[in-house]
Amino acid sequence: MPIEVTGLCHSYKKGTPFENKVLHEINLHIADGEFVGLIGPTQSGKTTLAQHFNALFIPQKGIVVVNGCNTSEKNADLISLRQQVGYVFQNPDYQLFASTVGEDISFGPKTQKLAAGEIENRVRAAMEQVGLDYDTFHRRDIFALSGGQKRRVAIAGVLACHPQILILDDITAGLDPRGREEILGVVRKLHREEKITIIFISNSMDEVAVLAERIILIDQGRISAVGSTREVFKQSDKLRTIGLELPEIMNIANKLRACGYHLPSALLDPEEALNAISSALEEGRVGN
């Protein structure tokens, strides 16, 4: 289910003195089963762009086609499109409203008017996918959950709609390291096992470096770089001028390289980096 964006522009508060152009002539293509990292500094237009993918925004100018459905068309079935393209928001408090975990997760399938048995199956499956035990959690009070658990419930609530594309909008912000690891584990599993297309919006370059296969870099509403994760992170000067940091592993590798150790450029995977660094340390400095 590919996403095709052509010449997309968007302004907030269009026609008022506060008009703010946030997207300029965006062109991009996302193929089935990809894991795309959407990165850029704050206010660069990442969220606005992503909300065009499930028709929360209809293009003011340009075309967005998702799985053959042109969102600008008058008779486009946006409700079914939104079920195919799941969107998890940064703050789970905007989404969760029911009193128990099970009730909240079943909300999406209920709006699809599924049979009661099917709804329960879906809730059970979605909770399993995010690592919440059905019997322990489905009657739990939502407001008694921890931040990480709430986020998992929010993801489960979207997964229960059976999306083919999942947009994750900065879902690890504000979590402690453990909660973050848990959530990222869930995301990785969804992509590997369920083959869901994932669009991962994040401000953490470390997360993106490890997870994403391809990166779309946005700056001030324009696409600044597109390519494999390695290719994009090789452009370290560009990232720095935009105001983004390199992943920590690359920083360490760069520093070692500056000290004269021989290391391949654009190391991203922690394990790969560990091997490269230890063999470089054994080899010793270049020229010694």
Binding site: L56, R82, Y87, Q95, F97, A98, G157
Partner: peptide, 30 residues
């Protein structure tokens, strides 16, 4: 909030009066 619920399939402009009223719960509670 409206966007988060629309993303889960709520159609705010569809349905009869009762359905429309019921759709307000997932918005006003949060």
């Amino acid at each position: 909030i409206i966007k988060a619920q629309m993303a889960r399939g709520v159609a705010f402009d569809r349905g009869n009066f009762i359905q429309k009223t019921r759709n307000l719960f997932p918005v006003f509670l949060p």
